[in-house]
């Protein structure tokens, strides 16, 4: 299972990095979203994977998963949303001001 999660993190990172390096705003936003997934799952996995042991106090339960990475990731998810919102609006603003959606504000597309 750990290998599966590690592979998923790897795929999310790879796809995220590739899209982040594109020249137009929308793919970059998608790329950062994918990277955010990768980072969140990575952080979450740092508490090790446990199944069926949620960190809700219950004397009948044998043990608990590590709640700390979960707390960190929970806020990270919300912050990532805030960042995505800000970024996409930045992209809109750039489009409005510069007339194109290239990350460097260029109009010659990806020629260079």
């Amino acid at each position: 299972m750990e290998i599966l999660i590690a592979a998923i993190i790897g795929i999310l990172t790879a796809t995220g990095v590739f899209l982040t390096l594109r020249g137009h705003t929308f793919p970059v936003v998608l790329g950062l979203t994918l990277l955010a997934y990768a980072v969140n799952v990575f952080l979450f996995a740092m508490g090790r994977l446990t199944s069926g042991l949620p960190a809700v106090i219950n004397p009948a339960q044998g043990g608990y998963t590590d709640p700390l990475p979960q707390a960190l990731v929970l806020t990270a998810i919300v912050i990532a949303f805030g960042m995505t919102a800000f970024l996409i609006v930045l992209a809109l603003k750039a489009r409005g001001e510069l007339g194109n959606d290239h990350v460097d504000g260029r109009t010659d597309g990806d020629l260079k």
């Binding site: 750990e2 590690a6 790897g10 990095v17």
Partner: peptide, 27 residues
């Protein structure tokens, strides 16, 4: 693409390195 694949592989390895080891949580 090459950089993306290298980063992906690096992250996979890094995750596995952590997940195959025990740790003492502070929780």
């Amino acid at each position: 693409a090459l950089l993306a694949i290298v980063s992906g592989v690096a992250m996979t390895l890094l995750t596995l390195m952590v997940l195959t080891r025990d740790f003492a949580p502070i929780s």
